[in-house]
Write a protein that binds this DNA or RNA. Structure first.
Lengths: 176, 176
DNA sequence: CTATCGCATTAACTTGGGTTAAGAGTTGTG
DNA sequence: CACAACTCTTAACCCAAGTTAATGCGATAG
């Protein structure tokens, strides 16, 4: 038994149009989502209505709200489709349950968590050690496709700055 | 078999004086460290000699360099003792090996990774959505002991600002 | 075709943080 | 004790980014 087989048995495929939410901040969502196609945005919304982009999720990747799926609390962020998208979701509890019975499932969950942890650590590093301009350069090098698919509003939200500041950075970096 | 027992068999206890490094950026360190007593600092050093504090590690917690222990690369950060400290280290490979044989070990590793992931996600949130001043307030509320034990230089390094900026924030928040 | 809406750019002004440097405690050590 | 090393604060100045607002440019709807 492995995760691929679990997905066939317990997974449910869903399709979403551009603009649709998969889940919203404040709700519960005890699923792990695998993205087959499309593009999604995970984002926080502050009390005063400002949006902060946690991550973009592309085909081949997965996402879940750990605080909801694992810790049982409300989702701290929302997940919305920036393009028409196709996903398969599986209850987190199924992974836990089968993880107890089958080594390989447990091992695969472990690997996913390790990958996830390293990704988060990398982003932490970028916020801690790099300037907004440096973060933009890294994004340009590592995920140039994202820059083409997404508005500057969302890119700015991902970098932790305003669209105005991003426009200035672009001007600086292309001219300079 | 569980991690506590594994620590008794394969763990090695070490004591370190204030100022000593447990491992340094650029080295390999394929261990997971459990802190019994003391206080440690994980930090990045940039090419131009600037220090950025990744985290403070207190008694009862654990730390490892995922990129070194799991991915086999060099450590991207250093680990140094801010106080005399006592740790137990265990090779990451032992956890992997026994994780394959014993469910409970695998489950415990899973739980540790989940805790770690949620911690990182929280820090990501703070950098993305909060100002330096707000991050300082959160630190004051959630880990007031740290503020007493650590220099402002390190606090500032943890918040992603300079000691001068931290001093200004303190003035603003105590007067205002 | 035109009106509207959302996106990107630019300007003007404000603000928070970086940089440098000086001065006032503290701590530690010979 | 005296000196050195370090920490913290404060001031002065600079720059990056936030804010607000105006403009131009598609795309889409009517």
């Amino acid at each position: 038994m492995n995760i691929l087989e679990l997905l066939k048995i317990h997974g449910k495929e869903t399709k979403h149009r551009k603009g649709e939410h998969v889940f919203k901040q404040g709700e519960l969502s005890k699923f792990l989502y695998f993205i087959h196609s499309g593009l999604l945005k995970a984002y926080y919304m502050s009390a005063d209505g400002k949006e902060y982009v946690k991550s973009f999720i592309t085909a081949g990747n997965s996402i879940c709200s750990l605080t909801s799926a694992f810790a049982g609390k409300d989702c701290s962020f929302s997940l919305v489709c920036l393009e028409d998208s196709s996903l398969t979701r599986i209850p987190f509890s199924v992974l836990v349950e089968y993880g107890d019975k089958f080594h390989q499932v447990s091992r695969q969950v472990n690997d996913m968590l390790l990958e996830f942890s390293m990704k988060k650590e990398k982003r932490e590093y970028q916020f801690l050690c790099l300037s907004a301009e440096q973060r933009y350069r890294v994004l340009m090098e590592e995920q140039p496709e994202i820059l083409k698919q997404v508005t500057q509003i969302d890119i700015a939200g991902y970098l932790g700055i305003t669209p105005v500041a991003l426009s200035r950075i672009k001007k600086r970096t292309t001219v300079g």
